[in-house]
Design a binder for these strands. Structure first.
Lengths: 234, 234
DNA sequence: TATTTGTAGTGTCAAACGTACATTTATAAA
DNA sequence: TTTATAAATGTACGTTTGACACTACAAATA
């Protein structure tokens, strides 16, 4: 077998930017790093890519270890590889971002990482370039959610229109007219109105909706505008 | 200095998907691989990330080596890292895609790589997972170009409306109504009409346009639709 | 000099969409 | 029965989109 002579080898890690939504605010799941350097400091959940796994498999493994959850929405964000990003030795990190239903998570969480949810406007200083990763992930989330219905990944199976709107308003740090908002959401034909209501937030109660999973899967990419009928292009 | 004990180290490469436009068709620049394994086979231009450079710097270095050009449009596409993607030893590759004015390139090209332009519907079998990278890059190009004015990167400084439309039609493998097309393009306010014409393609001649570089830089992200006024979100 | 030929350039109408905006309804608690 | 609170809903206007066909220009040729 040939080899590639004279080339340097590096460590390769994955780090996960984990978003959740508690009903009021978008949150970020951080852990206390369990090894040197920077032991005890706040950090993204991460780990090294092992010899027999792909980076995506590594991210899935690491996510499951922390949250107990499989099959989460997971998207490769960007690979960061400045030579000095890790002071110990050269390590490239493939950042993934993921969206989880915060309540699902609470049932399953591992306690060994001392994980906590933090609001995005007030989270602690993170190790290495993890803050930059969070910033990138946040931009990507806004970008993607403006075109595709990914934010449903953050909600429980049943949710109300006001909950959904709260989520969008928090993600975009904006307020939307509720008549226009619900009209637009309903026009996507992705939601199925339920017969029961959530009465926890008001006397009148708000009807629950569920995702139409079939249409959600099929229409996931169908949101573009600049090119005439760009739907079929992806 | 601490270390990370027991972790495997891997080679990290970058590979560049280089798009050009010859006036009729979108093209891909490929080289003949100069070393084992797969020596002499068609391949993307790539190389290993060196100890003192970031992956992006590696991509810039590699691009300049091949094309002689600096400051090209360059975007990180995705990192591919299946354990067996390179048969020699485990190598992760960070794929970048880049857009170049094919005529600029012709002035500068290095001959040592036996590079050739291929149309996207008919290019040779590539080594490793490079065909997958090309497919990813093509999707990304379509996606991105449907929202942002990146295709101008493929055109010379002065271009005509029919040339621009040809480019869009080739990228999307579609035909557009020229009245609607020019109306939409002009409404972006990114173009400056010139006084002179290109008479190479018709007797009447077509007016040249140039990019308004200031507005191009400022409005690069300003194309979205799902969220009201998403312009300021990026 | 008139005619032919081939591409460039332009306008209108109808439908869909985006946006601004205010009142009524349902229910629990007082 | 009244009150308080959040949920639900409709309309009108301006803008954008998309379908569609004719005229303008200039070189070559008759």
């Amino acid at each position: 077998m040939t080899r590639y002579p004279g080339q340097k080898h590096y460590l390769v890690a994955v780090d996960c930017i984990i978003f959740g939504f508690d009903g009021d605010h978008l949150k970020l799941l951080l852990i206390k790093r369990g090894f040197q350097p920077e032991k005890g400091k706040w950090s993204l959940m991460g780990g090294f890519v092992q010899p027999k796994e792909s980076p995506e498999q590594a991210a899935e493994r690491i996510l499951e270890k922390l949250t107990g959850l499989k099959g989460l929405y997971l998207e490769q964000l960007q690979t960061l590889g400045n030579p000095n990003r890790d002071p110990v030795e050269r390590t490239l990190s493939i950042a993934y971002f993921t969206l989880i239903d915060i309540h699902q998570y609470e049932k399953q969480i591992s306690t060994q990482y001392h994980a906590e949810w933090f609001p995005l406007d007030k989270f602690p200083r993170l190790i290495f370039d993890h803050s930059k990763m969070v910033e990138l992930a946040r931009k990507r989330l806004r970008y993607k959610a403006s075109l595709h219905p990914i934010l449903f990944e953050l909600l429980p199976e049943k949710f109300t229109m006001p909950q959904l709107q709260n989520l969008y308003e928090d993600v975009y740090d904006a307020t939307f007219d509720k008549r226009n908002f619900s009209r637009k959401v309903i026009s996507t034909d992705l939601l199925v109105k339920q017969k029961d209501k959530d009465k926890s937030a008001s006397k009148k109660g708000a009807f629950y909706y569920k995702l139409n999973k079939r249409k959600y899967a099929a229409n996931f990419h169908a949101f573009l505008k600049f090119i005439p009928n760009p739907d079929h292009l992806l």
